[in-house]
Design a protein around this nucleic acid. Structure first.
Lengths: 247, 247
DNA sequence: CCGGCGCATTAACAAATATCAGTGACAGGC
DNA sequence: GCCTGTCACTGATATTTGTTAATGCGCCGG
């Protein structure tokens, strides 16, 4: 808990507002939540497969991702998270983690005790519905990823991932003009879309060669949004964003 | 609404009991829900991508599945549902369907108006939590499927799918002795695990050749559960079943 | 009883993708 | 300023998987 708590939690309010309308009463209840701020460097696990967490975390700054590890070091990345997300909200009702959550870049996190979140939901059915809905959007994104991994070409998978990340950032006001940060390495992208890192490299070169996008350092620039969404068969409906998702 | 409504809805209670403990008060509230029973034959859409449903359906008899369609007829199956499931519960908070729901076999369904479900959740926070949790388990299964499709061998994917289905049926008392119905065609399996139907055929023959399972007509018999779960790298934790999942 | 249809199966071949084995650029720690 | 590790990138080769096309079987309706 800190002086900045109100500020930290206003990010959560902003996130919920991309999904529902938040009343003043609800806003105040949210901003009264006890939070513990913590800084983590890149590639630190926040919760691990098998853990029984007693708190959720709100991502304030930086990127995080969820993943599962299989035999022989195979890894599947399950989701990518940006400021405003609560990547382990599900732990509120599923006591045992079935996957891990890790920082991708250096992050600032606000930890909120489950106790406090459950109190909040007990007293504010509207917030309960909003948080429930947030986990449902999460699931909708999983469904789209399944489709991406199972049924699209590698080129389609990569472009679809980029379109999604750009729109998520844009929805939180963190990107515009078809450019954004892209801290995922080629190996991360590979583990997110179910191919090898070598193949990601080759397809990225193809995409660059076609002039569809630039990916340099940690920065993605999309040169032709319409062409890209076509290649990806990208339809943003699954993101269930409140406002019409014009980038 | 019908005389059989109480009976129909006791299936929902049984389902929730595999996940939480249901009080008598809650049980009575559930059994008071207004339901419309309907029979559908195999391969009928229940809700379609883009629809704005005004009700949820409880699956009473038969199997259903969710799917997305892509260009050129590609299809990704997202989940398989058995009696006790509410496959479109998410429509309670996500007004627009981002995928379709269809019967796999002939089905009996109980439709419950959103209005009535929302009333139920307003008056029974415990049920809200249970339903929310049910959608979270749904999402946990999506995560496992993503991993399955993205990072396992075709043989692993098929065996993993079979292990999951068997345990889900077992959890609802619909299967024992390592045998169960399996109405999925090879083409359905292919669309669930992201490979071609021809390849599914080849790998199934391999599995039969190894004596791990029998798949004849519409019936699956698992000959060596331990060997199968090993091949699949199957860990049932992600199903979040209340009781320890010994088959 | 026949015809049609969906499903399982097969083979031959083509395409996509993984694997392996590197190279070089760059950044951070000491 | 050097060492070390990570990351992007490359080429050769091996595997896996998809595609296409054809066959046969069993079931259902007329």
């Amino acid at each position: 808990m800190s002086l900045a708590a109100g500020t930290d939690l206003s990010l959560l309010v902003r996130k919920l507002e991309t999904i529902i309308t938040v009343s003043d009463l609800e806003r105040r209840a949210i901003e009264r939540l006890p939070v513990t701020r913590r800084q983590l460097s890149a590639h630190q696990d926040i919760v691990r497969d098998g853990d029984h967490p007693k708190q959720c975390c709100l991502l304030l700054e930086g990127w995080a991702f969820r993943y599962k590890l299989l035999d022989e070091g195979k890894r599947q990345i399950l989701s990518v998270h940006i400021p405003g997300d609560i990547p382990d909200l599900q732990s509120l009702h599923l006591p045992v983690m079935d996957h891990s959550l890790s920082t991708l870049t250096a992050c600032t996190l606000a930890f909120i005790p489950h106790e406090a979140m459950l109190d909040l939901t007990r007293n504010h059915p509207g917030i309960t519905a909003a948080l429930w809905r947030d986990t449902l959007v999460d699931a909708a994104i999983f469904r789209e990823w399944m489709t991406n991994i199972g049924r699209r070409s590698t080129l389609g998978r990569i472009t679809h991932l980029f379109c999604e990340i750009y729109l998520k950032l844009h929805g939180m006001g963190l990107a515009r003009d078809f450019a954004c940060e892209m801290p995922l390495t080629q190996g991360d992208i590979a583990d997110a879309i179910g191919v090898s890192n070598v193949h990601v490299n080759r397809v990225l070169q193809d995409l660059r060669g076609q002039g569809l996008l630039t990916l340099q350092g940690q920065r993605l620039v999309i040169h032709d949004w319409d062409a890209l969404t076509n290649r990806a068969e990208f339809d943003p409906a699954y993101l269930h964003q409140k406002r019409p998702p014009g980038p």
